[in-house]
């Protein structure tokens, strides 16, 4: 119950920050439109699939999730800075209440963000005369949930370990890495070699693959990336809760 009350507070804090709208909602839509325009300028003979709407939209939905990490990280580090957490440490709240209170709001925001991105993609598809499967989109949102949890875990870890000033810098590095080797802007499969190996060793590539296979209706290949994404999500979230609980306990040593 205390976790839910803390959760409501976190939702209000995030939704009342204008940057949330700019980065979580506005930025992915703007990128979707710009990349679609870029795709229009690429000759069909080039055979470049990565910017085509049914391929780009799932990538953008995944890319948007990386900003959820940024907001989780900023919120946790800001609370630590403003000493609100100290007041709450002196209250009957337990570590689990803090973890629930930070996780649930950003999962809701991640869901909203994916809905907005895919709605924009559907509108854009109607404008340019393309079709995207709504069932595929809904499945994509579900298969992207482990990826959302991965990014939330990164946000909890960095928010616990670094200062409010350092948080955006650290998150920018992860956002850049995830977008580059996650197969969002750069066709990693075509590049092959070490880059492809590195991509497959990290969670981002598999998360993007889940979203794209779902939208494409290619369900037979979906199991493997979903299992890998879920394993990463579980591992990272356990690590995040451990680091956060340890830090909360260390703060009262």
């Amino acid at each position: 119950m205390k976790g839910i009350i803390f959760c409501k507070r976190t939702v209000k804090e995030i939704l009342r920050d204008p940057l949330s709208y700019i980065f979580c909602l506005g930025f992915p839509i703007v990128m979707l439109v710009i990349m679609s325009i870029v795709n229009n300028s690429i000759p069909k003979e080039a055979g470049m699939k990565i910017f085509e709407l049914d391929y780009l939209a799932p990538g953008m939905a995944y890319f948007g999730l990386s900003f959820v990490m940024l907001f989780t990280c900023i919120q946790v580090s800001k609370d630590r800075t403003t000493s609100l957490l100290m007041r709450l440490h002196a209250s009957p709240m337990k570590s689990i209440d803090f973890i629930i209170g930070y996780t649930l709001p950003v999962i809701i925001i991640a869901l909203l963000q994916m809905l907005v991105t895919y709605t924009a993609a559907l509108i854009l598809a109607a404008v340019i005369g393309k079709s995207i499967s709504i069932v595929g989109i809904l499945l994509s949102i579900i298969t992207l949930l482990p990826s959302a949890l991965c990014f939330i875990s990164f946000g909890l870890i960095f928010g616990t370990l670094v200062s409010e000033k350092a948080a955006p810098g650290i998150c920018s590095i992860i956002i850049t890495i995830s977008s580059m080797i996650g197969n969002i802007w750069m066709d990693v499969d075509q590049l092959g070699g070490s880059i492809q190996k590195l991509s497959k060793a990290l969670p981002f590539y598999h998360g993007v693959k889940c979203a794209r296979l779902s939208v494409a209706g290619n369900y037979s290949e979906l199991a493997k990336p979903v299992i890998i994404s879920m394993a990463w999500a579980l591992g990272l979230y356990i690590l995040a809760t451990f680091i956060m609980s340890s830090k909360l306990k260390k703060d009262v040593q």
Partner: peptide
């Protein structure tokens, strides 16, 4: 914790509430 409360040196409020 259930019978005491504290107002810390630093102002500890939720800024956007």
């Amino acid at each position: 914790k259930s019978i005491v409360n504290v107002s810390t040196q630093e102002t500890s409020v939720a800024p956007n509430l």
